[in-house]
Design a protein around this nucleic acid. Structure first.
Lengths: 215, 215
DNA sequence: CGGAGCGTTGATTAACTTCAAGGGCTGTGG
DNA sequence: CCACAGCCCTTGAAGTTAATCAACGCTCCG
């Protein structure tokens, strides 16, 4: 692991910058240090579907793959910790533990993608929003954010959220406001919020039939 | 590779049999020899989303994972070529080439899952159906089927297709019949069909803005 | 003949999108 | 300091797509 130290460097991107274009050669692999980036696919007529969201600690890149088939865009100011591809692959072939870890990451992503398929294919707008908010809460708690009364963050605009959830931005806005009116969420401003009723949020996510109340 | 020969065995399942249950311990990894199996997730209230379709040559199982988070069901009579987990993992750690190949498989699945996310999140019912039919054509051509005037097969019922595409079975039926009425497809019976107008099918899939006519 | 399993078709409804207008920050320049 | 522009968000009304509800048809099989 310490060998990685020698070949790493940092790259920064401003909010809105495109980090990688679909089809780009992947000359480095990287991990997100700060900020939020999105993976998305655009259809020829302009319809967009986000296929991944990169928060700090997430990984970009794949061994033995020349290019990627989606765009990577910095949604906020982003700092990446980059490793040149060549030395990284050398490391990969000499230290078996690394390739095992990468396999785990790929399989985790696959599981996440399949859960998202259920959301996209079968959940209602309300369930999609609630699931998304729950995911934001979970990820930020893991990162040690939003603990005491500190507000949580929506790292995406309504428009970006709509592209993640397969909705329109108007529907996203309406559903977020519905959760607000019902007293499930409280908004400090457009991006910052708190969860008032954790259980109602979970029930709304559709991931549980009975609200999760077991004895 | 020849080492694998020593630890392999075959298992058969009848149409409708459940091959693996969500949460099952994975005591073996396997590859589909014959038949069709589905990977699917069921929500507590019964909504179903298929997250994968296994045709001959496809692989089940993942190294270093105890269990899976979806059901695997045989949709037709299925024969699997199975490898006991333990010896397989031993092989995996001694022959580096194998783990590399598994990584590739996982990354291919991830790419496929992301393409499916676009379909589920952004495509219309007509586009979903056309994309699905195109995929069936492609996969069967690769397998050497449906070449001269031999008909292609829909390996799933309308209901199963609807669960793959995030639609209802009625919508699947209507859209397939629409493509039939338009002269894009011809049906020999409920399962067997031919593509009359390949280009119209591709246009309907939404994967190309202008019908793919280049020069 | 009768039933089960699958598929089709029609009528109605519900959910979400689309279209349209306006509101509220935030930063900038007069 | 205020006016204004730009961006994002909200809200309402109308329009569409696909879901739902319901009935019926076909085919295989006992």
């Amino acid at each position: 692991m310490q060998e990685l130290e020698g070949i790493k460097s940092y790259k920064s991107f401003s909010a809105g910058d495109q980090i990688l274009w679909r089809g780009d050669d992947l000359t480095y692999v990287a991990s997100v240090v700060k900020g939020v980036a999105t993976l998305s696919k655009t259809m020829e007529d302009g319809r967009i579907q986000m296929v991944g969201l990169l928060l700090p600690s997430d990984f970009i890149g794949r061994p033995d793959r020349r290019s990627i088939d989606f765009d990577v865009v910095a949604t906020s100011d982003v700092t990446l910790c980059c490793f040149q591809r060549k030395p990284f692959e050398r490391l990969l072939s000499t230290v078996p533990h690394v390739s095992q870890r990468l396999m785990e990451i790929a399989l985790d992503e696959l599981d996440a993608a399949r859960d998202w398929m259920v959301l996209l294919g079968r959940k209602t707008a309300r369930e999609k929003i609630a699931t998304f908010v729950e995911m934001m809460v979970r990820r930020q708690h893991i990162a040690g954010l939003g603990l005491d009364q500190e507000p949580l963050i929506l790292p995406l605009t309504r428009d970006e959220i709509s592209n993640y959830l397969g909705l329109t931005l108007e529907t996203v806005s309406r559903q977020l406001n519905a959760l607000k009116k019902e007293g499930v969420l409280r908004f400090i401003d457009r991006r910052r919020f708190e969860v008032i009723d954790v259980e109602a949020l979970h029930t709304a996510s559709g991931d549980d039939s009975d609200g999760g109340v077991l004895s």
